[in-house]
Amino acid sequence: MSPSAITKAVPLPPSRPVPKFSTHPVITPSSILPKVASDTVPAWVQPDLSRLLQVEHNPGSYASRSVSLVNVDPGAIFSRISSPTPATCAYSSVQASKDLHIELNCDLVYINHSCSPTLVFDMSRWEIKVNPDLEGGLKVGDELTFFYPSTEWDMAQPFDCHCAQPECRGRISGAKDMPEMVLRKYWLNPHIEELLLEKKTTNGNGSA
Rank of each mutant, 00 (worst) to 15 (best):
Pro74Leu: 12
Asp154Glu: 14
Arg184Met: 15
Val10Thr: 15
Glu143Asp: 06
Glu103Trp: 05
Leu100Asp: 11
Ser2Arg: 07
Leu134Pro: 03
Pro149Arg: 03
Thr40Cys: 04
Asn205Cys: 10
Leu53Asn: 01
Asp122Asn: 09
Gly141Trp: 12
Ala43Pro: 06
Asn112Met: 03
Gly204Glu: 04
Pro117His: 07
Phe159Asp: 11
Ser31Asp: 09
Glu194Gln: 14
Ser22Asn: 14
Ile6Ser: 00
Ser38His: 07
Ser15Glu: 13
Ser173Met: 05
Thr88Val: 08
Ser83Tyr: 14
Lys20Tyr: 13
Pro17Glu: 13
Phe121Gln: 02
Asp160Glu: 14
Ser93Asp: 01
Gly137Tyr: 01
Val55Leu: 01
Ser15Arg: 15
Cys168Ile: 06
Val41Ala: 08
Ser150Arg: 10
Asp73Ile: 12
Ser22Thr: 11
Val140Gln: 10
Arg16Glu: 09
Ile192Asn: 13
Gly206His: 05
Glu198Leu: 00
Leu52Cys: 00
Glu135Asp: 08
Ser30Arg: 08
Val109Ile: 03
Val36Thr: 15
Ile192Phe: 08
Ile111Trp: 05
Ala9Asp: 02
Ala87Ser: 15
Ser207Met: 11
Cys168Glu: 13
Asp99Gln: 03
Lys35Pro: 00
Ser124Phe: 05
Ser22Cys: 07
Gln157His: 12
Pro132Thr: 01
Gln46Ile: 10
Glu135Trp: 03
Ser30Gly: 06
Pro11Arg: 05
Trp187Leu: 04
Glu56His: 13
Leu69Val: 02
Asn189Ile: 05
Gly174Val: 11
Asp48Lys: 14
Ala87Thr: 02
Arg169Thr: 10
Asn189Glu: 11
Ser79Cys: 11
Gln54Ala: 11
Trp153Lys: 06
Asp99Gly: 01
Ser150Pro: 11
Leu138Ile: 00
Pro84Phe: 14
Asp160Leu: 08
Lys176Ile: 02
Ser38Lys: 10
Val18Arg: 12
Ser97Pro: 02
Glu194Phe: 01
Phe147His: 09
Ile27Ser: 05
Ala96Tyr: 06
Leu144Phe: 06
Asp73Ala: 13
Gly174Met: 07
Arg184Ser: 03
Thr28His: 05
Thr7Lys: 03
Glu143Asn: 00
Asp177His: 10
Leu144Asn: 04
His24Asn: 09
Leu49Gln: 13
Asp107Ala: 13
Arg125Leu: 05
Leu53Glu: 07
Ser82Glu: 10
Glu152Phe: 12
Leu197Asn: 11
Met1Ser: 09
Arg125Pro: 00
Pro84Ile: 05
Ser150Trp: 05
Arg51Tyr: 11
Thr23Glu: 01
Ser173Thr: 15
Ala37Ile: 03
Gly75Ser: 02
Val94Phe: 06
His191Cys: 06
Leu53Cys: 02
Ile77Glu: 14
Arg65Gly: 00
Met123Tyr: 04
Val45Lys: 10
Met181Ser: 15
Pro29Cys: 01
Asn131Pro: 01
Asp177Ala: 15
Pro179Arg: 13
Glu194Lys: 06
Phe121Trp: 02
Lys139Arg: 14
Lys35Asn: 08
Thr145Tyr: 03
Pro190Arg: 06
Thr7Phe: 12
Met123Ser: 08
Gln157Ile: 04
Ala37Phe: 04
Lys129Ser: 07
Val182Ser: 09
Ile81Met: 05
Ser50Ile: 04
Asp160His: 05
Lys35Thr: 11
Ser38Asp: 12
Pro59Ile: 08
Pro149Cys: 10
Asn131Val: 07
Lys129Thr: 00
Val70Gly: 00
Tyr110Gly: 01
Ile77Val: 15
Leu197Glu: 15
Asp107His: 12
Ser68Leu: 07
